[in-house]
Each structure stands twice: as structure tokens, then as C-alpha cells.
């Protein structure tokens, strides 16, 4: 595929127009899932077709795009989607959260606090928070209409009865502005507090399920809970073994077959910036370089221009823009460390 064969940002203008209208209605009714005529995309359903369509409808040539999967810029699907937009839209890409104007994400919210002027686009597999309680769209639509969310509370309370606590650790349901119950996509519940009162626009795209929904900036988002069992954003009871961060979400990495393991930040950019700023953890690693990459000269579809592989990056590049939000733990509400 070369850029010249397709419209700017892949989608045709009429499709973008339709998606843009859906996004605006989503903004007007925060948390409500707007049906849209999702298109078949050149990547499979489940790989982020909803997010890709929303990003394509939002992108301008002036944007700087960041794509993460599991918090990391270098996971294969993140690399693949980033390359797709480099090729079809010719936009600049970055791994630095603070530099990006649009961030497409799967399963995480960046640790670095987002700012005005940024858009966070979530890839959503099942947009309907009530789906696992009621498989029928016709029924769940009625439940949203009538604000009949009792079933959800019953489910959460059954968890408490059985396990002593709410046994939902990701895709934890939230209520938006006191009205719609919303699925925040499969982010760990550690990330839920970042949904509320964000400075950025948050857009959610579910391609296969043909839904778009949105959170405007400074929208009040509450994780469902009970007075006697308040919501707790939990994480592993460790510091990052590379950068020493105590307040970031951690991946557990098995290092040998004898039970050895380590914990590292799931947000690779956050971790890199902390190390660049001199922080080190138990197994601390030295600093790596900036990840900002100029737009490729379209329509040449050459490989490797993304420079996503850190091993290939220029060690002499300018230091990364790691400033805002770092180490501030701006969203650090009620973080509970897991006792082992």
C-alpha cells in the first residue's frame, strides 16, 4: 500500500464526515454510545478498528501521533497502527506523551497527566458495560434509557458476598456525570481515576460493535462502588525495578524459570523519562534517547522509518521532552498496593 492510493488518513471524506458527526454527538451526551456505520478496515476487528477510525477522523497533517498498546509504544500492534498512519496520513509520530496531540491507546491511560489540546483515543472491544449481564442490545439500550443500572450493582455486590470485595480488576464500570454507566475499555482499574476531570478530550471507538462514545474534558467520572466497599485503584506492591517509580502501573516480568521476576512500568515512555531524569530502580538501566520522528516523505512506503525499535534509535538525539506531569502522581487517588 502506498499513501498515494488512498485518501488522507485512509478513510474517504464521506466516511470521516459520518464519524465526525458521531463524535460530536458523543461529546454532547457524555458516556452515551453513539451508533456509527463502522467500516471494514485493513486490520482485523479486535486490532483497534474503532480507535483507528476515530483517529483517522480526527487527524490533521499538523498532528503528532502516539500509539500505545499495554502502555508500551513498541508492542507490535502499536507499531503496526503507528506505521499505518505514518503511511496514510504522513503525520509526525512520537513516543513522548507530552509531545503527542493525539494518542491512540489500547488498555492503558498514560501515567503522565494529559493536557488541553490532547486527544486520547481508546480502542474498545465491548463498549456496552451491561453486556455481560444482559447479552441483548435491545435490552441494554432500554436499561440505559431508563437508567436501570440495578443489575450492575447486584453483580458487583455478589462479588463482595463471594470474595469480600469487588472482583473486577479491569474494564471497571464508571458512571459519567451521574447519568450513563460506561465501559472505560479494558484499562486496569488503577487507571480509572484518570478518566475523571482530565484536561484532554477522551474518545472511545468500538469498530466491530459500531459504537463511538466520548468524555469531554473536565467531565465527572465515578467508578461504581458501595459506601461500605469504596472503589480502590490498586497496583502491585512494588516500585519499578528500572526507574524506581512507586506510583505507576507495573508489568510483572518473569525473568527465569525459578520464580524470579521483576516489576517494570507498563508505560514505557514514563519509565524512560524517569530514567532520563536520573531515577533508577533496583535493576536500574541507563538513559535512552528521544523517540520523536519526522513525518516520512510520502508516498515512499519504505520500512523502518518509524524508528520504533529503541535499539535502532540515534543515541545522539536530543533529550526527550520529559517534564510535565512526571513524578507528580497527579492522579494518585486511593492507590492501594497489593499485599502478597
Amino acid at each position: 500500500m502506498t499513501a498515494g492510493d488512498y485518501n488522507f488518513a485512509y478513510l474517504d471524506e464521506q466516511t470521516k464526515c459520518m464519524i465526525r458527526r458521531a463524535i460530536l454527538k458523543g461529546i454532547a451526551v457524555p458516556g452515551y454510545q453513539v451508533p456509527f456505520a463502522s467500516r471494514e478496515m485493513p486490520m482485523p476487528y479486535g486490532w483497534g478498528t474503532g480507535g483507528v477510525q476515530v483517529t483517522a477522523a480526527c487527524l490533521t497533517p499538523d498532528d503528532t501521533l502516539k500509539v500505545i498498546d499495554q502502555g508500551a509504544d513498541d508492542t507490535t500492534n502499536a507499531v503496526s497502527i503507528r506505521k499505518f498512519f505514518q503511511r496514510t496520513a504522513g503525520v509526525a509520530v512520537t513516543e513522548a506523551t507530552a509531545e503527542a496531540t493525539i494518542i491512540q491507546t489500547r488498555h492503558r491511560i498514560p501515567e503522565t497527566a494529559l493536557t488541553e489540546g490532547q486527544i486520547l483515543v481508546y480502542q474498545v472491544p465491548i463498549p456496552e458495560p451491561l453486556r455481560f449481564l444482559e447479552p441483548r442490545e435491545t435490552e441494554t439500550r432500554k436499561m440505559h434509557e431508563l437508567e436501570e443500572y440495578g443489575l450492575m450493582h447486584v453483580k458487583l455486590y455478589e462479588d463482595i458476598a463471594r470474595h469480600g470485595q469487588i472482583a473486577t480488576s479491569y474494564a471497571y464500570p464508571v458512571k459519567v456525570e451521574g447519568r450513563y454507566v460506561m465501559d472505560p475499555s479494558p484499562i486496569p482499574k488503577f487507571d480509572n481515576p484518570k478518566l475523571s476531570d482530565s484536561s484532554a478530550i477522551q474518545l472511545f471507538g468500538a469498530g466491530r460493535e459500531q459504537r463511538i462514545y466520548a468524555l469531554p474534558p473536565y467531565t465527572h467520572v465515578v467508578s461504581l462502588d458501595f459506601d461500605d466497599h469504596p472503589f480502590v485503584a490498586s497496583k502491585a506492591a512494588h516500585d519499578c525495578d528500572l526507574c524506581g517509580a512507586a506510583d505507576s502501573y507495573l508489568d510483572e516480568v518473569i525473568t527465569d524459570d525459578l520464580g524470579g521476576r521483576m516489576f517494570v512500568c507498563s508505560d514505557t515512555d514514563f519509565c524512560r523519562c524517569r530514567r532520563a531524569a536520573g531515577h533508577t530502580g533496583r535493576l536500574g538501566a541507563p538513559v535512552t534517547a528521544s523517540r520523536t520522528v519526522a513525518p516520512p516523505p510520502p508516498p515512499s512506503p519504505t520500512r523502518g522509518e518509524g524508528g520504533a525499535d529503541p535499539d535502532l534509535s540515534d543515541p545522539g538525539a536530543s533529550p526527550p521532552p520529559c517534564g510535565e506531569g512526571l513524578g507528580v502522581g497527579g492522579h494518585r487517588h486511593d492507590i492501594k498496593e497489593t499485599a502478597e
Binding site: 485518501n7 488522507f8 488518513a9 471524506e13 470521516k16 464526515c17 465526525r20 463524535i23 460530536l24 461529546i27 454532547a28 477522523a57 480526527c58 487527524l59 490533521t60 497533517p61 499538523d62 488541553e116 478530550i201 466520548a214 469531554p216 474534558p217
Partner: peptide, 19 residues
């Protein structure tokens, strides 16, 4: 240049409605 101009216009209208 519809693809580029409509993209900029949409972003401005998105900002307007979202803020």
C-alpha cells in the same frame, strides 16, 4: 483541499463543542 481543510475544521468544531 477538502481532506486537510475539513480535518482542521472538524478539530476546531470538536474543541468548540468539547469546551
Amino acid at each position: 483541499d477538502a481532506p486537510v481543510q475539513s480535518a482542521h475544521a472538524f478539530r476546531a468544531s470538536l474543541e468548540a463543542l468539547a469546551r
